[in-house]
Design a protein around this nucleic acid. Structure first.
Lengths: 191, 191
DNA sequence: GACAAAGTGTTCGAAAACCAACGTTTAATT
DNA sequence: AATTAAACGTTGGTTTTCGAACACTTTGTC
């Protein structure tokens, strides 16, 4: 079953409209009429695709979450010690075209639509899987270090989303220092 | 008679598609099927709006030409001696959102679709109107100076289209030198 | 509490776009 | 010159979108 192009275009326009409006108003302030006006679609068409504006928002967050989940999983599998930050850099490269959307959605924190929280949750899960084998030998609680690692990566991710790249030497240094500290806690023998 | 939004959207998509394709292929190499594929419209719909791809192109060129004509006319009226380059800067500011489109169309030179030539022609006409009063007193042919002035402005216009702004001091200096030379020919008494 | 204004969600006939199919034209190959 | 493939332009039935209308809920005001 192939989707009619009109559906694809309508949904694309509606989603883009919501992103645009989110840079101007809060979710609550945005009306369905606003979205339709901006996207050049009629309200009846909107309701043919989404239950309401929250359904639209949750849908968009879900799509990006799924994409991130798949990528983060694949990349973590390929990960070698000491290249954890490269994971985030690689992810950012893959998401290049979605950057504006992700950047906007990161500012939205609704009950069932919180992309930032989803990303953090996915990264945390992978960190926990990564740390698990070392768990017993560690001096520091595994969950704590997993959270630390996650937060460092989220920081890199958000900084890069906002500034385009981690070209700033000072920032790169700061992150690297923290990264090494975190890894040292996990693998005291190596390095 | 208000246009149906679907028509607006379809034409917007088709036009955007052509612009995109023009960055990859020549007009001749681009097929109607290409345009439809890129714009997510069906071929039957394309033919409901345009006779063929050249009709589409001419249409787009005509729109930008008309817009430029109106702006250049209004601004030339407000023009004061020595602020001729500000005209181009002002025009560029007004056309900010259309910059990518204009930039691409400037590279296309078809028989009845040559935006660059149209712009040059419009500027030249205004220069001729501007110079006319000084005509008899000038040491240099009026038409020559009009052409010179036009060329300088076209250069600024194209450079700014390509590089975003005339922030480069060297470029700004070079242009200013030429501008003054041109104006000096026209108004030997003033300055 | 009455009221107006604005937003919500639904319905339905008309208009537009889709898409697959078709025969025709064009251009390249042999 | 014959053949083939690709692009052209047209057609008609199907799907989607539009737009206006409707009743209903929410919000803020007098």
């Amino acid at each position: 079953m192939v989707k009619d192009v009109r559906k694809i275009k309508t949904e694309r326009d509606i989603q883009q409209a919501l992103l645009t409006l989110l840079t101007q108003k809060t979710v609550r302030q945005i009306t369905v009429a606003d979205i339709c006006q901006t996207s050049l679609t009629s309200r009846s068409t909107f309701y043919a695709h989404y239950i309401d504006k929250y359904d639209l928002l949750e849908n968009m967050v879900a799509v990006h979450t799924t994409m991130f989940a798949q990528q983060v999983h694949v990349r973590f599998m390929q990960m070698i010690d000491g290249q954890i930050d490269e994971l985030v850099q690689g992810l950012l490269a893959d998401m290049a075209d979605k950057r504006p959307a992700i950047q906007i959605l990161f500012t939205i924190h609704e009950d069932h639509a919180d992309l930032q929280a989803n990303f953090r949750s996915l990264l945390l899960k992978e960190w926990q899987r990564f740390i698990a084998p070392y768990g017993n030998a560690m001096q520091v609680p595994a969950d704590l270090m997993a959270t630390m690692g996650t937060n460092v990566q989220m920081t890199v991710l958000e900084w890069t989303l906002a500034h385009g790249d981690v070209s700033n030497a000072a920032v790169a240094d700061a992150i690297d220092t923290i990264r090494k500290a975190v890894l040292l806690q996990i693998q005291p023998a190596t390095n």
